[in-house]
Design a protein around this nucleic acid. Structure first.
Lengths: 354, 354
DNA sequence: CTGTTAGCGCGTTCAC
DNA sequence: GTGAACGCGCTAACAG
């Protein structure tokens, strides 16, 4: 029984017109109980499924959301996509998923592809939300979209994110309170992204507030070879006055850095403390557990879908939704031996509600 | 400039018919250089993008691949989807992504949704490829699909996978060669999946071949709370003759188990060795590194797309493609103190080429 | 080489 | 309450 079952087949079987079948299926107009039953029976017998294509062509709207992310390999993005998928499914929508693989220029191409598919809206994480021709295009064509993870400076751009600067500020203050004075800042790939910048800003602000010297970010490829990280870190940590702690711009990088430091013979956290950013699940499964900023990545995906639907269906204005983050204490972050004041390890500092 | 730009708009602007515009865009028939240039100019000026919907309605084929996986949260599936996405993009296709979240019954619903969108084909990882009404339906309707990670016993079902049984067999033999005699088998969620079964079979076969007693699988929810894992493991490892090693049915579980064992006061690998399955990237980033079966997850996604396209475009027959696996030595797996024979740690045993 | 035309599957006016 | 007819954007078959 191949798939040549169209609305016409059903109409013939039910002995009525295609218009009536359409009415029954979509409950778009009242129908008599008799014909209603016949149509439903025919639908069931034939295994008819209305073609989304025919429907889309007519209404010029699909039940599809386009997604653009840098990479699925990073659990942060995988988690937010999981949230999007679940939220979209609740609303009878599916996800058209694309990834740039950090390739510059891919954003524009992917968005065009998705727009050509008449997606109902877009959810994207871009390198830089501030100056982005692709987003300008979407604005111009009036196609609804929501950013995730990005913090657009340009108001009027919808986004769901955490306050990256505030988060690293809080995290850095915690490290300072634990007695650390020289805190290295290690940035992962894509260091030019707007969120990476915001994170470094928070770090710098906290350091300066404490009268300490902020470090220039050291750029590393996260989850590259641990040996190469070891090499890159050797110079920094075997110098005269080495850092006692490292703040990493994301969790994948942090886990990798922990490994590299150990390869170099340093104990974590005894010799060097390490903290990450994101709150990926695995950070809690390794030993010692990773100190990090816990961000609600899955929820971010869900909220992004909710916001997008509000914009599409209710004409809601684009807005930036800040989600709360949590400082998650972990075994990789300990007070220095020469701590000026003991740090309270158990504290969970939470951002103010959005 | 809203999006009311259709092929007709372009035709008017270029001063030709819509058929000619179509020909220029798709290079489906020769056109004169003059009209060609005019059309391209019009396309560029108007920012025209042919609607995939109109095209799909006509050809009854979309440039879209439907994907069904259990969850995006597991890096194994995230990696294979990343491979699919990249391979699909090379072929000008996009992915319609759905996830069951391990909810029984979701498979059927998601497949119906995807079929209603006229996907060109499907790529799926199902709980059980052996008895599966959804796959029977696809067979009946002659919709091309490829399984990933599943090992269908039913020949005629296309799949890309590793030989799970052979892999755990080899891994178990390595552990036995390292002197382990009591090797626990810890299974993650979804223990009823066909691949989980095959993995346990390989373990059991190796144990029996060595004249050892295979353990009944202990089922744990992977990446659940580490404390709860600790509880679940306490009974087993604090018994009279505790296992000296644990074989975990996947890497996420293995990393979690390492944490739980440490919580219980065991040293890994000094007191208990641990091995996983999958070869997720993070296994190499933690310390000690995770001993595991390295499976080419990303490649599996790429190959699945390639196979699907061969079936769609060249009418290739469905076939099962076995990809090679590698035993990856890791710090979590060490010889027992009472080893009968020293194990050669450096060996990398590779499966025979497919 | 190019234009005209007929649908693809569906929702939606209009009449009745 | 129901049916006939049109058109959404596009490709393909057929004329010219």
């Amino acid at each position: 029984m191949p798939r040549i079952v169209t609305i016409r087949t059903v109409a013939e079987r039910a002995g009525c017109s295609i218009a009536t079948v359409s009415r029954v299926i979509n409950r778009s107009a009242p129908t008599s109980a008799a014909v209603d039953a016949r149509v439903r029976a025919a639908v069931a017998e034939l295994g008819f499924r209305p073609s989304e294509i025919g429907r889309a062509l007519k209404t010029l709207r699909t039940r599809t959301l386009g997604v653009v992310i840098p990479s699925l390999t990073n659990p942060v993005f995988a988690a937010s996509v999981a949230g999007m998928q679940s939220a979209a499914r609740e609303r009878q929508h599916t996800l058209l998923l694309t990834a740039t693989d950090y390739e510059p220029g891919a954003e524009a191409e992917l968005v065009e592809t998705l727009v050509a598919q008449n997606v109902a809206g877009l959810i994207l994480t871009v390198a830089d939300a501030a100056e982005n021709a692709t987003l300008d295009l979407l604005d111009a064509e009036d196609i609804p979209y929501v950013l995730v993870h990005n913090e657009p400076p340009h108001p009027g751009r919808a986004a769901v994110c955490v306050d990256n600067a505030a988060a690293t500020f809080a995290l850095t203050e915690t490290m300072i309170a634990a007695g650390h004075r020289r805190i290295a800042y290690l940035a992962g790939r894509f260091a030019t992204s707007d969120r990476a910048r915001r994170r470094h800003e928070g770090y710098r602000a906290a350091m300066e507030k404490a009268g300490l010297e902020p470090e220039v970010p050291l750029e590393l490829d996260y989850l590259g070879d641990a040996p190469s990280h070891a090499e890159a870190l050797a110079g920094l940590f075997r110098a005269g006055a080495p850092p006692t702690a490292a703040l990493c711009s994301n969790d994948l990088l942090a886990l990798s850095v922990v490994g590299a430091l150990r390869t170099l013979g340093f104990r974590v956290p005894d010799d060097v403390s390490v903290a990450g950013f994101d709150g990926i699940a695995l950070g809690g499964a390794v030993h010692p557990t990773l100190a990090t900023v816990d961000t609600p990545t899955r929820l971010m995906g869900e909220r992004a879908v909710a916001l997008l639907f509000a914009m599409i269906n209710e004409g809601a204005a684009p807005r930036v939704e800040h989600l709360p983050f949590t400082l998650r204490p972990g075994g990789t972050l300990a007070p220095t031996a020469r701590a000026d004041q003991p740090a309270s390890q158990g504290d969970r500092i939470t951002s103010s509600p959005p």
